[in-house]
């Protein structure tokens, strides 16, 4: 029994050592990623500094002016007040602009008509009557 206990503890210390190496590598990579960005200078707390992903969430949190002029913040806000919400997302972390979409969750039946009327060219596909992927924002 003692042998099993010691073996486990030894393995765990080895795992902890390797894990810390991986975790710190990811942290460093993230730091370099942030350092290469001049999007948000002067953020006082390093750990609160938003990453580049900020811009893609701008529509979701519509209070912030999106970096992309294609998305009108007022339009996003109108969505919110009408009972919609925007959840922009990205699929490719390395080259996020390439695949940026806006997902719209509809909560009112008239939303579909509004979107088709105002953004006819943006609608790419839909899942039932609930989710619409709008065409890529910027390539």
């Amino acid at each position: 029994m003692k042998i099993a206990q010691y073996a486990l503890i030894a393995m765990l210390f080895y795992c902890i050592f390797c894990n810390l190496k991986i975790s710190t590598a990811i942290i460093n990579r993230g730091q370099k990623f942030l350092d290469s960005s001049d999007e948000f200078p002067g953020t006082p707390f390093l750990f609160l500094k938003p990453s580049l992903t900020h811009v893609y969430h701008a529509g979701y949190y519509a209070d912030h002016t999106p970096a992309n002029p294609d998305i009108d913040p007022n339009y996003a806000r109108n969505f919110q007040t009408a009972g919609f919400a925007l959840a922009p997302t990205f699929l490719d972390h390395e080259n996020p602009w390439k695949y940026s979409f806006v997902i719209v969750h509809l909560s009112h039946p008239e939303a579909l008509a509004n979107i088709l009327k105002q953004w006819p060219s943006r609608v790419m596909s839909s899942n039932g009557s609930n989710i619409f992927l709008l065409q890529q924002i910027k390539s």
Binding site: I26, G30, F33, K49, S51, T53, H54, A87
Partner: peptide, 14 residues
């Protein structure tokens, strides 16, 4: 340290 990547959380958080 790791939250530099995930300040807004992952997909389901948004």
């Amino acid at each position: 340290g790791l939250s530099h990547h995930n300040f807004y959380g992952d997909w389901d958080a948004w």
